[in-house]
Structure formats: C-alpha cells, structure tokens
Design a protein around this nucleic acid. Structure first.
Lengths: 202, 202, 202, 202
DNA sequence: TATGAATGAGTCTTCATTCAT
DNA sequence: AATGAATGAAGACTCATTCAT
C-alpha cells in the first residue's frame, strides 16, 4: 500500500494552490452541502486538477476541516477582539455589547452559507464538534478574564458569560437569516443587551 | 418533480406499512445521518421491499421530511403542552419554568440523535428549515397568547418569549450533551430561570 | 456504513447470473491478467450491469477466488479421478501413468490461460496459495492411499508421490506451453514414467 | 512504442542512478508486487525524483524487465557455477548434486520474494517468459555440455538434465517455503538425488 | 540533467431508482 | 400491491506519465 504522504507545501505557488482549494472547496460545500459537492467540482472551481487535491489533502473531509479551521475562526474571533481591545466597565458595558453585536452580525453576513453549514456539521462530525467546543471554551474564558480584570462580580461568571454569548450568537444568527417577520429586531437587540447587563451585574 | 402517482394508502395495512417506513427510516437517518443511510437499509429495517418504498414516497428525501413532520413535533410540543395546561401568573412563573425545563430535557434525552440530525438539516434543507420556522412561530405565538391571557405585560412580548425559548432550548441542549465540564448546570439553570422571570416581568 | 450483504442466489436465473460472472470474469482475468481486467468489462462480458456484480461478490478479488475454486478443481481433479477409478498395481502402473498424463494434458489444454494466471497468482495471493496447497495435499494423500491399498511399499510414500506429481505436472505444463523446441517430449514422457515407476517401486 | 529518447547514461553518476532505480524498483516490486508498487515509491526509494525515472526508462514495466535481467541471473547462475567449476563424474555426481542443492537453497533464501514474483510474472508477461525460457535453455545446455565432457551417456541427455533441474528447482522451492508440514525434506532431498543419479546414469 | 508539482484518465464501488414478475 | 433483482450514473481516489522550472 502506497504511503499517502500529504505534501505540506512550502513554496509560494503551492501554498496559494492549497489555499485556493480550501477556499473554493469550503465555499462550495457551504453553498451546496458536503455531500452535494464532489471533488471534481472543487478542483475545477479552484482551477486545479482532481489529482492535485489529493497531494494536499488526505480526502474530501480534510478540505472541509481545514476550511472550518480557517474560516470559522474569522467568524468567531471578531467578538473577542472587540472585547480584548476595549476597556470594559459597568458604565460602558452596554456600548461595548452594542458594538460587539454589530461586529458579530457583520462577520455573519460575510459568510452566510459558511456559518450555516458549519453549524450543521457540528451535529454530525465529531472532529468539527470538538473544534467548536474548544473555540467556545476559549472564547468564554477570554471574556471571563477580561471581566474579572475589569472588576466585575466573579460569582458564577462563567455561566453568565456563557449565557450572554448564547444570546448574542442567537440574536445575530436570527437577524442575518431567520428574519421572523413578526419580530422587531431592534427591540430584540435592546432586550438582549439589557438582559446581559443585568446578568453580568447581578 | 412529476408526482409519479404516489399512492396515498387508504387500507389499514398499507397505512401501517407507510408508518413503519417513516418510523424506521427516520430512526436510521437520525442515528447515522441522511447520507449514510440507504433506502435498502430503510426498507429492510421497516420489513418491506425496496420497491414498495417508491410507491409511498417520491424519493428518499420524502421519507426524511415525513419523519420530521411526524416526530419533530413530539420533541417540541412538550413545552407547549405544559404551558397550555397550566395557569401561569407572575407568582408561579418560576415553578412553571422549572417544570418546563425538566420536561424539555426529557424529550431531548428521548431522541438525542434525532434532535441532533434534525437541527443539522435545518441549515441545509429549505423545506426542513421552513417546517421548523413555522413550528417556532407557532410555539412562540402560543406562549404569547397564554401569557397575555394571564395578564402579563404585553410590551415586546413576542421578542421576550422568543429569547426565553432560546435560553431554555440552549440550556437543555447543553445539559443533555454535557458539553462543558467547567460549567455548573444547576447554577446555569437558576440563572436562566431568573433571567426569564426578569425578562417577562420587565 | 451499509452492511454489504452478499446475496447467495437461490433462484435459477440468479444462480446462472452468478455463474456467468464467474465464468466470464475468470476468463478475462486469465486472458489479460487480474489488474488488466476491470469490473466493467467483466460485467459487460457476462451480460450484466456493473452494479449487480457487487450483489453477488464482495469485490473484484472475490470473482477471481470463486473462479479459481470452480475451475482450478476441474484442472486438477482429472488426475485424481483416473487414479481413483483404476486399480493400480506394479504391473499396470506404467499404463495408468500414461493415461494420467494424457488426461492431465487435456485439461491443461482446456484452459491454457486459466492455468497460467492461476499459477501466477499463487505467488502473490495468500488465499489462492492456500487453496492450492490444500488441493495439493488432498491430491497427494488420495494417491498415497490408493497406492497403499494396492500394496505398494509404504516407505517415504508421501515424498515419492509428491515428487511424482511434480514431475507429471511439469511435464504436462511444458508440453502444453513451453515447447522447448530442442526437447523431444515423447522421450521426456517416457523418462518421467520410468522415473516414477522406479521411484514408487524403490 | 516510440523510443522517447531514452538516454543511455554514460557518465558514472548517471549509471549509478540508473542502477539504483533498477535495484530499489526491483526490490519493491518483488516485495509488494508490480501493481502494488508505484513509480513515486520507486523513485523515492532510489533517492531520485519521479521525473528522472522516465529519462532512463520508457515506462514502469521497463524497470521490472531490467531488474529481472540483472537479478534473475544471480538467482539461477549459482547452480551453473558449481557445475562449471567442478569435475563431475559418475562417482562424485551425488556429492555435486548435494552441493548444488545447498547452493540453490541459499540463493532462494536470498530473495524469497524476488523468486516468487518473478515466477509469477513469467505467466503473464511474454518478455519475461522469454527471458526465463532462454535462461533455462542456456542452463540446460551448459550442464549437458559439462556432462558430455565428463563422459556421461549422451542418450536423451537434454531431457534428463531438464527433468533433473525441475526436480532440484521444486525441491529447493519447497524447502525454502516449508509448504508441506507433513513432508520430510531430508528424505525428499535424498530421493531427488537418487532419482537424478539413476536418471543421468541410465 | 534534475526536480517534483500537476495532470486526468481510469478504477472500484455505491445506491437511488426502476422494472419484470 | 409487492418483491427484490437489476440498472447505470456518479463519486472518491490513484497513479503512470508529463512539463514548467
């Protein structure tokens, strides 16, 4: 049996090629679903031959994983960056949250399909689920740290932050996709912010 | 898709056969995923021939849809039933919520995989997504109605209920899947209840 | 993962179909080599679709194995039959051997390619090698038994029979294929017979 | 096949490179089989690039052929060397045979797989088959010549030698692979030697 | 000469769907 | 209505060979 050695490309052109495969492959998968996207399409879309794909990736699944690793971070880290770069205190918490939500929505918009398919796969694929779990933990811990450094009440702080993140994540998700026509999203945003403020300060 | 003369079974035995296909098909799909379950398995598991499947369903996808229509309701209605059958008022709201959560967790446990796979598909399949959206709307409206009839503050009530449902849903999901070892779920449950109480009463 | 259940056909038409696949598949493999014969060709040659092949066989390799099991026996058993059906004694041994060789040659001719490819695979494929080893052992033991019942000297009888079989097998093989032009095969046949007679009677 | 300008290397380094490819390629092929060894592996094992292989060889098959030409001789010539360098006469024939067998076994052991795979290919590949046939003829003729020079009976000498070689070859092969546990190989060796002595002296 | 990235035809295998019975 | 054998298109992946550098 041939040893399936995956080339980790070092030359610039090769790196670009691998990136292209990840980008186009991930896009296609997000648009049409993992099982509805075949390797030939991915290769064609990336402007390479089918064969070359298997020099950079073990298999189709690998492309998805790498895509998630690459683009999922972009979707989740903005929130973190905002938090990190800002001084949070009880007085500006509301404002910071508003900014956070705005930013979160922006990144959601950046890759509608991506977010959709990634979330979907979380439920089926252990590797992907793990990736997200770790990401979430890291995010929660980071926010907790910031809050503690800013003098917020440490009681049940992990749980509070976790619930806050859930609320923001859901809010943004719905604003971008669900579009329940019977909902007023400005109102909902304010409710979320108030709820979080109360929660954190409780 | 031309409606290839799908027989809507009228005889008792036929109806039972169709039900069996839906039940076993849906179970398999939930366990192993839609793309990892083939029609032969479904037929075998349902105790029928492969051919007969296509007399009751247009295609494989149809089986899934009917499965969701039938069983997804069971997963989401408990909450509703509780709400409907109980008199809610500001004083017993906390207790009702507690009961709701308990019940919600139970139905999560009843069909872990189902819930997982269904949620996953929501993101890929428009038909399924629609089904869930409508379900959610119906659920929200029902709860809203109950609250209004019980004299709660009608201001932004739709949004408040929606956020409450999200919080409960997420809480239960995490309790069932025990995702975060670093979280205290009793604490979180109390936080959720308090948050909802504050929200609804605000 | 779907359970790859191989249908063991019971109906007449199905059995015939399986037989056809074995026959044509084996013929093609023998003619062109295992790696130079693809499943599409086998299916086409057998007059069936590619898909059906995998309802009767686990994989391509299976076809080969079944082919060998079926046709290799035909090639090797004639020798045995002759031996079994004849009364051998020191006086007619020479005659029996002559007849054996004639028959052996006939079956070699019946499936030139088969013999060729089978022998080839013996060296690569453990399963096939095992099959042949067992066949050889069985054949040797059968002949030994006959000789013992006929009152031949039991000393080292297994080894003697084994060498005899090798000589006959090689002789026939060369007569059918090698065709060393510089050899006189009538002479060689006589030499082989005399050698065996001496060996067995020694 | 158009001779795509295969460079016959003249410089020392080039020759070494070609030799390396033949050696490592042949070894891999013998170990894993021709169709289970790919050119990338061969190149890597030989410490060269994939591309360069096609400057020394027309195709993969070429590597095998050259490997056989080069190494098969080593496997078969020992027997010959012994014969050539020794004075054979009716009195020492037995001893010479014993030595021959010992030596033959040694070379079998040196490259178990090689012998196995080469023999296998004989049945599929005409070019290889021819090579072996010629080798056999040459070997037989050489031995015949020696025997004639040593005063042995020339009657049917080609056939006798041929059968002798077959017996030795088979004996050694079995001793090396220990195929039949129910056989006593010392006994068999003696039987073979006696048989050959009788044959040659007859 | 030499490299190793790139090609793409070819392979085995699966499976939704159809059809003869 | 029912069966399950049959179909064949489609998919993931491999690898001998070529080619830009």
């Amino acid at each position: 049996m041939a040893e399936n050695e995956i080339r980790e490309p070092v030359q610039k052109r090769s790196i670009e090629k691998k990136e292209k495969i990840i980008k186009h492959g991930f896009e296609l998968i997000c648009e049409k679903g993992y099982y509805n996207t075949n390797t030939a399409e991915i290769a064609k879309s990336a402007g390479v031959s089918t064969g070359i794909v298997y020099q950079y990736f073990n298999d189709k699944h690998d492309i998805l994983i790498e895509g998630i690793k690459k683009y999922a971070s972009r979707i989740f880290f903005p929130m973190l960056h905002i938090a990190k770069d800002t001084n949070i205190n009880p007085d500006n918490l509301e404002m910071v949250l508003k900014e956070m939500i705005d930013n979160f929505i922006k990144s959601h918009l950046l890759s509608k399909e991506a977010h959709s398919e990634i979330t979907a796969m979380t439920h089926t694929d252990e590797q992907i689920a793990d990736f997200f779990k770790n990401n979430e933990i890291y995010m929660t811990n980071s926010v907790v740290e910031i809050l503690l450094n800013s003098g917020f009440n440490p009681e049940n702080i992990h749980e509070k932050v976790h619930l806050s993140i859930i609320l923001i994540d859901n809010l943004c998700h719905e604003i971008v996709y669900h579009k329940h026509e019977e909902m007023n999203y400005e109102t909902m945003t304010n409710l979320v912010i108030n709820t979080i403020v109360n929660l954190i300060n409780s």
